[in-house]
Amino acid sequence: MEQAKDPAPLFSRRRLMAGTALTVLGGGAAFYMSSLAPGYAGLSLNVREAHQQAVAGDITLIDIRRPDEWARTGIGEGAHPIDMRRDDFTEALVTLVPDRAAPIALICARGVRSARMANRMSREGFSNIIDVPEGMLGSAAGPGWLASDLPTLPYKEPT
């Protein structure tokens, strides 16, 4: 009579390794997903629309990147550079656009910072914030300002 084999032990080395790998990968995926651009439920424009509307004066386009980024790529025609890291960012924005209901579009490099800042500005009482999720360099939303061959102006350091 053939003896039945014992099933694999509940806590075998193989099962322990597989469980550890799944835990690490699952945690890594959760971290990756949390580091992506936050959702912004408001309006958005592609870079061509943002350029056309900024040049026409229909929106105020704010480039929220850093000065070193502006120096490398230039600033999109029609955009106003205001570094989002400024302690007085909101005050600088209100100086440029006093009406918190006016349409203000935000652009950064790849759409992550602009979405975050759009959420922040909405919480701070700006009611017509528009995200440009393609950014200057492109993202999942599209090729971006530079790859779309939209005009840029050189950045000049303030003196």
Rank of each mutant, 00 (worst) to 15 (best):
E2C: 11
Q3E: 14
P7E: 15
P7V: 08
P9M: 02
R13F: 15
R13D: 13
L16H: 11
A18Q: 14
T20L: 12
L22H: 15
V24W: 12
L25Q: 00
L25S: 11
A29F: 15
A30V: 09
F31H: 12
L36E: 08
Y40R: 02
Y40P: 01
A41K: 12
G42V: 10
L43M: 13
S44Q: 13
N46Q: 10
V47Y: 03
V55D: 02
G57R: 07
T60R: 07
L61D: 00
I62F: 03
I62Y: 10
I64T: 13
D68H: 06
W70F: 07
A71F: 01
A71L: 14
T73Y: 06
G78S: 10
G78F: 00
P81Q: 05
I82L: 02
R86A: 14
D87Y: 03
D88H: 08
A92L: 08
A92R: 03
L93A: 02
V94L: 14
L96R: 12
P98R: 09
R100S: 02
P103A: 03
I104W: 00
I107A: 13
C108N: 01
G111D: 05
G111W: 02
V112H: 13
V112E: 06
S114G: 04
A115E: 01
A115G: 07
A115T: 09
R116L: 10
R116T: 03
R120W: 03
M121R: 13
E124C: 11
E124N: 09
G125E: 05
I129M: 05
D131L: 02
V132Y: 09
L137P: 05
A140I: 07
P143F: 00
P143W: 01
P143A: 10
A147N: 12
D149C: 04
T152V: 12
Y155I: 12
Y155W: 11
K156D: 06
E157Q: 13
P158I: 07
